[in-house]
């Protein structure tokens, strides 16, 4: 650390970086600390001024804020706004920060008072419906995934340091899944959100014979209605599709739409596969 980094003779600016967490499992931050073999290189590239999970002292003087977690309390809203004011670049780290993550499942309950009593009993915590960072402040960079992949964070940090642009795959998980020559889970009789979910995880779940749950949110041009047609054709219920789409919060609009449809099915008794199939 300390000595100035150069790349092809050009000094590389070492940005001051801070990590923050809101409502989350802190698993994404752990991912960053996890790969010890590259941790030192990471620290050479950025100057970490605040990282509660890894250090005791903190500073308010940072340029890039990596923010993990979703927003579920009033005080979190205020803190996030402060971070936004200080940071030049605000990075949403992981699915909770990007879409609300698993936590936003609680938004599905109509009676939030009941949820509160079940979880906290009489403990006086003012818990709000879960929101993503972008619901409250402007997010400059999103790093998707539950959890994130450290390699991806490292690549993004390298690109920031070298002034290169940050690009995510725009296509869905299927592209990576078939490049890994997996047998499609639909052929094996299991549902999968791969056709609508943004790639970048190298089809982590299908590689392990598990269907995708959409943790990276929607791919560009993703159309869950087309996926629904395929799911229905393969014999999966609307509930199964909705459960999957709901899990990480990346598809809230689509699952709400399907839930409306489900209510109509309750009345007419038939599912329209749609999508022309």
């Amino acid at each position: 650390m300390g000595k100035e980094k150069t790349y092809l003779g050009v000094p590389v600016y070492r940005p001051r970086v801070a990590f923050f967490e809101f409502t989350s499992c802190e698993g994404c931050q752990l991912q960053i600390l996890n790969r010890e073999e590259s941790l030192l290189d990471f620290l050479n590239l950025v100057e970490i001024v605040d990282f509660r999970e890894a250090m005791t002292e903190g500073s308010d003087d940072y340029e890039i804020a990596f923010v993990e977690g979703c927003i579920s309390r009033d005080d979190e809203v205020v803190r996030l706004q402060e971070i936004r004011q200080r940071a030049k670049v605000l990075v949403a780290l992981g699915s909770c920060a990007c879409f609300g993550g698993v936590n936003q499942l609680k938004n599905r309950f109509l009676d939030q008072g009941w949820v509160h009593r079940q979880v906290y009993g009489e403990y006086p915590i003012a818990s709000l419906p879960v929101r993503s960072l972008a619901d409250i402040v402007t997010v400059d960079v999103s790093i998707f995934g539950c959890p994130i992949k450290k390699e991806e964070v490292e690549k993004i940090v390298t690109n920031i340091a070298l002034g290169k642009s940050i690009v995510h795959p725009k296509y869905p998980v299927c592209m990576e899944c078939q490049a890994n020559e997996n047998i499609c889970l639909f052929d094996l009789g299991e549902p999968c959100l791969g056709p609508v979910t943004r790639a970048g995880c190298d089809s982590w779940c299908p590689n392990n014979r598990a269907g995708c749950w959409g943790c990276r949110g929607p791919a560009d041009d993703a159309d869950p209605q087309r996926l629904k047609a395929i799911m229905v054709k393969h014999g999966f219920s609307l509930e199964t599709i909705i459960d999957r789409l709901d899990c990480f919060g990346g598809f809230v609009r689509e699952s709400a739409r399907l839930r409306d449809e489900l209510e109509n099915v309750g009345q007419t008794g038939s599912v329209d596969p749609g999508g022309g199939i």
């Binding site: 590259s38 290189d41 390298t158 296509y171 869905p172 592209m175 078939q178 499609c184 056709p195 087309r226």
Partner: peptide, 28 residues
């Protein structure tokens, strides 16, 4: 109907289109 998923090109024995990406290692 198309999901724009790319599966057809991946399984196809004659599709050859590609992209190229340069990655700099973390230690530069």
């Amino acid at each position: 109907r198309c999901l724009s998923c790319g599966t057809c090109a991946n399984v196809c024995p004659t599709c050859y289109c590609y992209g190229v990406e340069e990655t700099v290692a973390l230690d530069l």
